[in-house]
């Protein structure tokens, strides 16, 4: 078995959710690493969009620190600004909206606005806010999320819904006229989740090597359902790890 880090496992697992030739709207952080890896391996014909406005048929030469980092733009195919890429989202042309967040709930709603009750101003702890995550998750055909996991981050109900998952359950997105299909897959620091077709509730599909269903359930604040076919995530191969480390030679993202 290859020697790998948790971030490397997460990146390789996420990349498997991207198919060749898909249009992928890439958020900041590890998603940028995932896109670079997908380009270098099974998805050379992927189309990468960022909210800073870069449209790319090739991976950036180096890994951008932010979505608006000039490194994400150098050598791009078009750098026409946020209007161009976000409009493509609203036209329904984005296959995969790839986001992160601070807190997720059982219906895949994401909070990146703050902790606490917003109406109680004195105790609300602001984070940065939506950025483009809300737009991406509203209109992308399917949403892929990458999140750290513990009981404060995987909650029954988000304290503030910044970015819609399935909101309160089945049919709610449709009622509001959202064109995107909603969350499809969540990769956490512990395992991989999917959403039940009928109930729209998030369930555990895979546990990472070294994790167990019990440990994962303990790091989740609601009674997490587990797929009857739950399995261990396939570890990255030595070749995959080698490619990854070539892409991030200084360990900027991978640690």
């Amino acid at each position: 078995m290859a020697d790998y880090k948790l971030t490397e496992l997460m990146v390789v697992r996420c990349a498997k959710e991207i198919k060749d030739e898909e249009v992928v709207f890439v958020g900041v952080g590890l998603p940028i690493m995932v896109a670079a890896f997908a380009f270098a391996t099974h998805a050379p014909n992927m189309i990468m969009l960022t909210e800073g406005g870069a449209i790319r048929a090739t991976a950036p030469e180096a890994l951008a620190i932010t979505v608006d980092d000039p490194a994400a733009f150098a050598g791009g195919d078009a750098t026409s600004g946020m209007l161009a890429t976000m409009a493509a989202l609203q036209r329904g042309e984005v296959d995969v909206a790839f986001i992160g967040g601070a807190q997720i709930d059982k219906y895949g709603n994401i909070n990146s606005t703050g902790a606490g009750d917003w109406t109680k101003k004195e105790s609300f702890t602001y984070f940065a806010g939506s950025g483009g995550a809300n737009d991406m998750a509203t209109s992308g055909k399917r949403v892929l999320a990458i999140m750290p996991q513990d009981r404060k981050k995987f909650v029954e109900k988000c304290e503030y819904i910044t970015t819609p998952g399935y909101l309160g359950g089945p049919g709610e997105r449709e009622k509001l006229g959202m064109i995107g299909g909603g969350p499809d897959c969540v990769v956490s620091t512990m395992g991989v989740y999917r959403f039940d077709e009928k109930s729209k509730e998030m369930y555990l599909a895979e546990y990472f090597p070294g994790q167990s269903v019990d440990k994962i359930k303990a790091a989740c604040a609601w009674d997490l359902k587990v797929s009857p076919n739950v399995k261990e995530t396939i570890a990255p191969t030595a070749e995959e790890v080698k490619v990854l480390r070539t892409l991030d030679p200084t360990g900027f993202y991978l640690g």
């Binding site: 101003k121 602001y126 809300n134 737009d135």
Partner: peptide, 23 residues
Amino acid sequence: APYAIRRAFNEGKLKRYDISNFG
């Protein structure tokens, strides 16, 4: 983090109106 904004909001010195990037 947005530390000063967080404090000003908590102290009632700042009104904040949130929206998405494309909003």
